[in-house]
């Protein structure tokens, strides 16, 4: 998750104070991991340095929040580019799990059990997410779905791998 680009995107809606930005970010994207104020301001500073935002005006006498940030054309272009371009399709390989499976096979350890344990862990997490989805609102639901679909993809990998363990064993232990 790119914090600078997300903040830029929030700014494109309307000029905002740093505090508003943090609140919106936490509301929509934070989910249990609030953005520290420090990071907000340092990021905004860097964006200002690069000419992607400017400070609009300073309203005196209204507390600490006097600076309002406004997106520049350059900033808007960057947001646009980011939204339009597809994310690099990184394969979310379970590299750690993969390494565990291969090592277990090499060491004659019960790779199947590791996979089963992992499956149970995944399913347990999926149950939590499903429960969250069933009890929460639309936003929580969509977020849970995102996680569920990813976990499901991992599970399919786990299923496929357990179905091919024998073949894999033959390859790693010739």
């Amino acid at each position: 998750m790119s914090v600078p680009l997300t903040l830029l995107g929030l700014l494109e809606r309307q000029p905002s104070h740093g505090y508003d930005l943090k609140r919106d970010y936490d509301l929509w994207f934070g989910h249990g991991r609030a953005l520290p104020f420090g990071q907000v301001y340092s990021t905004l500073a860097r964006l200002a340095r690069d000419g992607k935002v400017v400070m609009d005006e300073v309203t005196p006498g209204e507390g600490p929040e006097r600076k309002r940030y406004v997106i520049t054309d350059r900033g808007a272009t960057e947001v646009d580019t980011w939204l339009t371009e597809p994310v690099a399709p990184e394969p979310h390989q379970q590299t750690v799990l993969f390494a565990k499976v291969v090592l277990a096979l090499m060491l004659d350890r019960p790779a199947e059990e590791y996979l089963d344990t992992q499956r149970r862990a995944h399913l347990a997490r999926m149950r939590e997410l499903t429960e969250a989805k069933r009890t929460g609102g639309l936003v929580e639901g969509l977020l849970a779905d995102h996680g569920l679909f990813h976990l499901e993809a991992d599970l399919r990998w786990i299923d496929t791998t357990s179905a091919r363990l024998d073949a894999l064993r033959a390859q790693v232990k010739p």
Partner: peptide, 22 residues
Amino acid sequence: HEARVAAYADREIMVRDGRVTS
């Protein structure tokens, strides 16, 4: 056979080759 459907359950059991494994 769908994990997302199984996630509605309280728990899951695995059947493989005619036996319950988990």
